[in-house]
Design a protein around this nucleic acid. Structure first.
Length: 574
RNA sequence: CGGGGUGUAGCGCAGCCUGGUAGCGCAACUGCUUUGGGAGCAGUGGGUCGGGAGUUCGAAUCUCUCCACCCCGACCA
């Protein structure tokens, strides 16, 4: 490709509304342009990268035995009503009517559609297992689209759905997908980790997320220092402290704490660490009453864990100030377990506290030196309801947890029969008996992968694409070609030779100054650069430099095609 | 949805407080010079100042209203 035929649309200035580096660079390099909040146009250069990702995803999915399909973006409401998600989904589901007034939505995902497809097309156990996938646009009307292509409203996703006779077959495909995902992200050249995950609103059993590690990631991941254990903090289990609870050695004492409500204020006011304060949160119970959740002051409630507990309203709902006033006759901030006449659930770590402080259920009053059993019965329900923190013991008993940030680029689920049962997707088994199919689903955020790749691969000059993602493999830069017929001839000849050798080369034949060319090619992140100049030609040499290197290498013109082919091969295999 | 902010040339911004001929830099186009790290000089084109209503002799500027976009928050008592 020639730059005279392939305008680069790079911009020197950083757009004002781009917060994170990938967003800035995607706009500066001319990959995308914003159309509206969360909506982007893809320019030719960006499309090339998109296609690279798609090709790798396709190859690995095909290799893993999945079959490509294509389903509509616009989906009839009936199917969503059948699964129950028409009501469950909030405003994130974009709904619309056609000219006849019939209801539709823009697909945020395709479980309903694939289940409808499968129940019509799959009749016999002999056709199973089957794994369908597509690469298709999704629309989610996000509360707040942000970080450019990282959380846009419209985005490209690879989604796959598998169908099975039983759990064992599902597990087999799930394992294959797990492997396929590892292959995909390895081939893409990303630094990533598969982690145990919560199944979220989609429901189901086992689930893994694939995270690209980056500071700007929106998710927190907990890793063991000593083992392979890795989990999203939403999911990571906070194990009970291994040491036994300290003996009471302080007397119970009631102290005035006027205007001191938050844990921070209390710990400062009483001059005790937050870990010695007990935090009491009131939430709604299933029958619309109240339940108290007790946590160590320095710990945070894990909403996902809490709302799964029997008796706790799901989704988790905090008690209002009025509820609390009515039930306890005090304000928030002064609640504690002593003489608290509502059901209590205590976190494992909180159950190990001794000589702690807590609210006295009277405005402006706290207790000090509180101990379980002596001053207040230890609640029967001891559960894991907190977020893990750095330094916690790893749930597998090996090492401690460290926490890193990640960008979720893939997610695989064992769905079970959630959708197939609701939508009656059955096949006949070998006895001619109707059986509900078991399902799995597997997603990759194709557009997000690109943003994540840039977050992980950039320098002060621009993008430093992993080889597999770069829009072109080689930049061919002639210095002032329009002034030298000899240079022009040599450049054209080399361009042709590279193309013939199957190299994806971008030939900068614009009449621009050298510095301009260098900057453009570095910004858009082409991994290999060949520079031709008159001086070099005198000696039959050209210059080579890899995008991530800072020094030139002189290569004989006669060898450069072989040299480059080899360099490309090397970067691809690493 | 709550709070805050911004809308002026393709992009980045000034002008607004204190009403009086719409500006700067980059980009684009033309010409000349230059040519190994985003060139210099000269010239050219480009604006319903987000939309609407109002106040005024006169509104980018003041008032009201609508819209768009951005940031923070939306469990941490």
């Amino acid at each position: 490709m020639r730059t005279s035929d392939f305008p680069l649309n790079t911009v020197k200035e950083t757009p004002a509304d781009a917060e994170i580096i990938s967003h800035q660079l995607m706009i500066r390099a001319g990959l995308v342009r914003k159309l509206a909040a969360g909506l982007y146009n893809w320019l030719p250069l960006g499309v090339r990268v998109l296609q690279k990702v798609q090709n790798i995803v396709r190859e690995e999915m095909d290799k893993a035995g999945a079959l490509e399909v294509l389903m509509p973006v616009v989906q009839p409401a009936e199917l969503w009503q059948e699964s129950g998600r028409w009501e469950q989904y909030g405003p994130e589901l974009a709904r619309l009517n056609d000219r006849h007034g019939r209801e539709f939505c823009l697909g945020p995902t395709h479980e309903e559609i694939i289940t409808e497809l499968a129940r019509n097309e799959i009749k016999s156990y002999k056709q199973l297992p089957l794994n369908y996938y597509q690469i298709q646009t999704k629309f989610r009307d996000e509360i707040r689209p942000r970080f450019g292509l990282m959380r846009s409203r419209e985005f490209l996703m690879k989604d796959a759905y598998s169908f099975h006779m039983n759990e064992a077959s599902l597990q087999e495909t799930y394992d294959r997908m797990f492997q396929a995902y590892n292959n995909i992200f390895n081939r893409l050249g990303l630094n990533f980790r598969p982690v145990l995950a919560d199944t979220g609103s989609i429901g189901g059993n086992a689930s893994h997320e694939f995270h690209v590690l980056a500071e700007s990631g929106e998710d927190e991941i907990a890793f063991s220092t000593d083992s392979q254990y890795a989990a999203n903090v939403e999911k990571a289990e906070a194990v009970a402290p291994s040491q036994t609870r300290a003996e009471p050695d302080q007397a119970l004492e009631k102290v005035a704490t006027p205007q001191q409500k938050t844990i921070e204020e209390i710990s400062q006011f009483l001059n005790i660490p937050a870990s010695q304060c007990l935090k009491t949160l009131l939430v709604k119970s299933e029958d619309d009453g109240l339940i108290a959740l007790l946590l160590r002051g320095d710990h945070q409630l894990n909403e996902i864990k809490a709302e799964k507990l029997p008796g706790v309203q799901n989704p988790l709902t905090l008690a209002t100030d009025e509820d609390i006033q009515q039930a306890i006759h005090c304000e928030t901030g002064y609640i504690g377990p002593i003489n608290l006449n509502i059901p209590l659930i205590v976190d494992r770590s909180a159950a190990h506290m001794a000589n702690f402080a807590c609210g006295a259920n009277e405005n402006g009053q706290h207790y000090l030196g509180v101990n379980w059993q002596r001053d207040v019965p230890l609640p029967e329900r001891i559960e894991d309801i907190r977020q893990v923190v750095e330094g916690d013991e790893s749930p597998d008993g090996q090492g401690t947890l460290t926490i890193a940030r990640g960008i979720e680029v893939g997610h695989i689920f064992q769905l079970g029969t959630k959708y197939s049962e609701a939508m009656n997707a059955c096949v006949l088994d070998e006895n001619g008996k109707n059986t509900v199919m078991t399902m799995g689903c597997y997603g990759i955020g194709v557009t997000r992968v690109i943003a994540a790749a840039i977050e992980q691969n950039h320098d002060d000059k621009g993008i430093t694409w992993p080889a597999a993602l770069a829009p072109f493999e080689v930049a061919l830069l002639p210095m002032n070609m329009h002034k030298s017929e000899r240079l022009k001839a040599a450049s054209e000849k080399l361009y042709l030779a590279l193309k013939t050798a199957g190299v994806d080369v971008l030939f900068d034949d614009r009449k621009v100054r050298p510095g301009f060319m260098f900057s453009d090619m570095e910004l858009i992140g082409i991994p290999h650069r060949i520079v031709l100049g008159d001086k070099g030609l005198d000696n039959g040499m050209v210059e080579y430099r890899a995008r991530t290197e800072s020094d030139n290498q002189d290569i004989p013109l006669d060898n450069i095609v072989d040299f480059i082919s080899q360099a490309i091969k090397n970067t691809k295999s690493t």
